[in-house]
Design a binder for these strands. Structure first.
Length: 502
RNA sequence: GGCGGCGUAGCUCAGUCGGUCAGAGCACACGGCUCAUAAUCGUGGGGUCGCGGGUUCGAGUCCCGCCGCCGCUACCA
């Protein structure tokens, strides 16, 4: 089985989980589920980023140690993902011992290779913020934009990563495979940044101690980004289990938001090179899920918690909407009108209603026993085309396109019923052929849509009378026309997606 | 300022190498059906493919200019 390693960024634990986080995580989950369905050996990783000044400050403000503080916060993310039926294989926290060990090993290696050097960091520093500011970030008279008091000129001995040494190799990496960073626009953005020249980066801090200690100089801790990125290696046994590491690396797919392109497409591959391992195979960049045209932010009070939506719409409809309405790469704008429209059109009217009408007619014309599909049905060709298109789209990390293709089979099946009108005819082979084919379409839809809506598709599977779960099947083999055996008891059940008013 | 991108039906968007490319879904209108969650099916778009030039037998699809919008231009988790 080919290895398929997919990651989300580790989320900064000081944030509350919101649908922007959920957007990325659900996409990664659906893609992971698709690859499991395709028979790949999948490892899906997410987690939390817990170091850094702001976390330490928040902990202090709450009268807790940073560790105790993050122990309280991390489960909010893990819990949010459990609620959304996210099937991650591991959940990593950067404060874990295993991660500290890997960071130290990895960065020691880079140090030994001569790519981390001691140098002096100079800049305008605000004591209140405990932070450096670039010249143009400061207000008039070089005052801190937050505190309004003058920043001070500081010089600090720091360790620097020699990013500048990797410009040529990074360009080579970018150009060795046009699919390295997708979509192409983001790739070009990152590439032009690299071509514009790279400076060395300060990667350690002495001002705080909530972080991973620098092994060769314990007065320092690593700057959060330099420890955070390494999580992708920690979880697959870097330095601990060489066979395991070799199985998953560099066959990785990093799913990230556009705001962290530089870290993942420039710093990270360079760090890997410096440590003597291959850079990641693929970085998939997604846009932002906006609310009212703006990025969600604590300060704007426009964050929407996933739980607020799932209580109202259900888990699978929320997952479906996130996957279907915002293709990876572009920004999306979340709205209740948007999710409601999608819910009614695609889930209630098309999918839910199709299952209901077919189940009813199977009940009246076939005594509730689902007939076998017609091998010569017009839908067979439609289904084959849909399977091919949806598969291609999932492979290309385009869940929206995959689902759009899948829904074409639903529409065609509704149309086929309309033209055959089995409810008007006496029971018999002709009616059986039409209804069996409709059931077969639903079976294939349940298979293809299961990465997006695992619970719903399992329920459809069950109502069709099929044993096991869609996720136990394999594509493309089990998506071939004719897989529905017939002779199974079909259950109508309550509406899968009750239509929503307004 | 520099580099890059975008501007196609009311809405969200597809449109590979220039020649049925003027499309899909939603919304809307009309008609059919009444098995189904007032769901579904069919039919309907006089859209200057941002504006103006150019190349070509022929351009959303290539070139130039203009207008409008957006992203990046480093040490922020």
């Amino acid at each position: 089985m080919p290895p398929f390693y997919v990651t989300t960024p580790i989320y900064y634990v000081n944030d509350a989980p919101h649908i922007g986080h959920a957007y990325c995580t659900v996409n990664a989950d659906a893609i992971a589920r698709w690859h499991r369905l395709a028979g790949d050996d999948v490892f899906f990783l997410t987690g939390t980023d817990e170091h850094g000044l702001k976390v330490a400050q928040a902990a202090t403000a709450n009268g807790l140690s940073p560790q105790a503080w993050t122990d309280e916060l991390a489960p909010r993310f893990a819990g949010a993902w459990a609620d959304l039926q996210i099937a991650n294989d591991d959940f990593i926290r950067t404060s874990e011992a295993r991660h500290h060990r890997t960071v130290q090993q990895f960065l020691q290696r880079i140090y030994d290779n001569g790519y981390i050097v001691s140098d002096t960091y100079r800049g305008w520093y605000c004591v209140g913020c405990e932070q450096y500011y670039a010249e143009d970030e400061l207000a008039g008279d070089r005052t801190c934009p937050v505190h309004g008091r003058p920043a001070e000129w500081y010089e600090e001995e720091n360790y620097f990563f020699r990013l500048s040494a990797f410009q040529d190799r990074l360009v080579e990496w970018f150009e060795s495979d046009p699919g390295r960073i997708l979509p192409e626009q983001k790739r070009n953005e990152a590439l032009s940044f690299v071509k514009g020249g790279l400076q060395d980066i300060s990667i350690t801090r002495t001002s705080i101690d909530w972080g991973v200690p620098v092994p060769w100089d314990p007065r320092h801790v690593f700057y959060v980004w330099y420890d955070a990125l390494v999580n992708y290696l920690t979880a697959i046994g870097y330095g601990q289990d060489d066979d395991r590491f070799a199985r998953w690396w560099p066959a990785v797919h990093h799913l990230i938001g556009k705001e962290i392109i530089r870290f993942h497409c420039v710093w990270w591959p360079a760090m890997c090179m410096a440590a003597g391992i291959d850079p990641p195979n693929h970085v998939q960049v997604h846009g932002w899920l906006l609310v009212g045209g703006e990025k969600m932010a604590k300060s704007k009070l426009n964050q929407i918690a996933p739980g607020d939506l799932t209580v109202d719409f259900g888990v699978d409809p929320v997952r479906y909407h996130l996957l279907r309405d915002t293709p990876l790469g572009s920004d999306g704008d979340f709205s209740y009108e948007g999710i409601t429209a999608r819910y009614n059109a695609d889930l209630a009217n098309n999918l839910g209603n199709l299952l209901a009408r077919v189940a009813t007619v199977v009940g009246t014309k076939c005594g509730g026993v689902g007939p076998a599909p017609d091998p010569a049905s017009r839908l067979a060709a439609v289904a084959a085309g849909v399977v091919a298109e949806a598969s291609g789209a999932w492979e290309a990390m385009q869940p929206a396109a995959a689902l759009e293709a899948t829904w074409r089979l639903i529409r065609e099946t509704n149309a086929a019923l309309e033209s055959a009108e089995p409810w008007k005819h006496a029971p018999g082979p002709a009616v059986d052929a039409v209804l069996g084919s409709a059931l077969e379409s639903l079976r294939i839809v349940a298979l293809l849509a299961s990465p997006a809506m695992p619970s719903t598709c399992a329920e459809i599977w069950r109502r069709l009378g099929l044993g096991g779960l869609p996720e136990d099947r394999r594509v493309p083999d089990d998506a071939a026309w004719g897989g529905y055996p017939g002779g199974l008891a079909v259950e109508k059940g309550a509406p899968l997606f009750p239509r929503r008013q307004e």
